[in-house]
Simulated scan of single mutants.
Amino acid sequence: MALSNEEQRLLEQMEAALAAEDPKLVNAMRGTGTRRVHRRRAALAGVAFFGGLVLLVAGLYLATGTRGYIALSVLGFLVMVAAAVIAILSWQHVGSAADMSDRPDRVKTPGGSRPPSGQGFMDKMEERWRKRRDEGM
């Protein structure tokens, strides 16, 4: 259910008063802490990726027929793959949190970025298509 203009204005005034009174609470409610955690996790995964690359190259350099150094290369490759997956997933969380905090008209949902009204990306695209088709005829 949509809010009337007066209700929206009152809500904005209440949000502004709360932000002025307790900015730490506002930051906690916006989820900036989780964005910071995901950003830090992505950065650490980037460092781990380069550490895995060093292990891979060192294992290949030292591999002169012994299996121990080949295992070092395989370990480096596995570290690189795991770090890349963690970095990509964390960076997606950073991007979705930034998108949600930049757009106050969007509602955050714990399960994903889809608003609770059920209108997703494809629904919006179909609606736009229908409007264009109706206007053209």
Score class of each variant (00 low, 15 high):
residue 85 V to W: 01
residue 26 V to G: 04
residue 33 G to Q: 07
residue 71 A to V: 11
residue 95 G to F: 08
residue 22 D to L: 05
residue 52 G to C: 09
residue 62 L to H: 12
residue 17 A to L: 14
residue 52 G to P: 02
residue 21 E to W: 10
residue 8 Q to W: 03
residue 120 G to A: 10
residue 109 T to L: 02
residue 87 A to P: 00
residue 50 F to W: 07
residue 56 L to P: 03
residue 128 R to Q: 05
residue 104 P to E: 12
residue 52 G to W: 06
residue 119 Q to Y: 07
residue 112 G to D: 05
residue 76 G to F: 06
residue 113 S to A: 03
residue 67 R to A: 06
residue 133 R to M: 13
residue 13 Q to N: 11
residue 58 A to L: 15
residue 54 V to H: 03
residue 74 V to W: 00
residue 126 E to L: 13
residue 29 M to A: 09
residue 81 V to H: 04
residue 15 E to N: 10
residue 59 G to M: 07
residue 70 I to T: 14
residue 8 Q to S: 07
residue 53 L to G: 11
residue 137 M to D: 03
residue 135 E to D: 05
residue 24 K to E: 13
residue 41 R to S: 03
residue 102 D to T: 14
residue 29 M to S: 07
residue 58 A to P: 04
residue 3 L to Q: 05
residue 12 E to K: 15
residue 42 A to Y: 08
residue 13 Q to W: 06
residue 127 E to V: 09
residue 58 A to K: 00
residue 98 A to Q: 15
residue 25 L to K: 10
residue 75 L to E: 02
residue 34 T to D: 11
residue 44 L to K: 12
residue 122 M to W: 15
residue 136 G to A: 12
residue 43 A to M: 14
residue 70 I to S: 04
residue 102 D to F: 14
residue 22 D to G: 00
residue 24 K to M: 10
residue 107 V to P: 00
residue 120 G to T: 08
residue 115 P to F: 03
residue 85 V to R: 03
residue 65 G to Q: 08
residue 80 M to A: 01
residue 45 A to F: 05
residue 66 T to Q: 06
residue 55 L to H: 08
residue 50 F to V: 13
residue 129 W to D: 04
residue 28 A to W: 00
residue 67 R to K: 12
residue 116 P to V: 11
residue 48 A to W: 02
residue 24 K to C: 04
residue 104 P to C: 04
residue 111 G to A: 13
residue 16 A to Q: 09
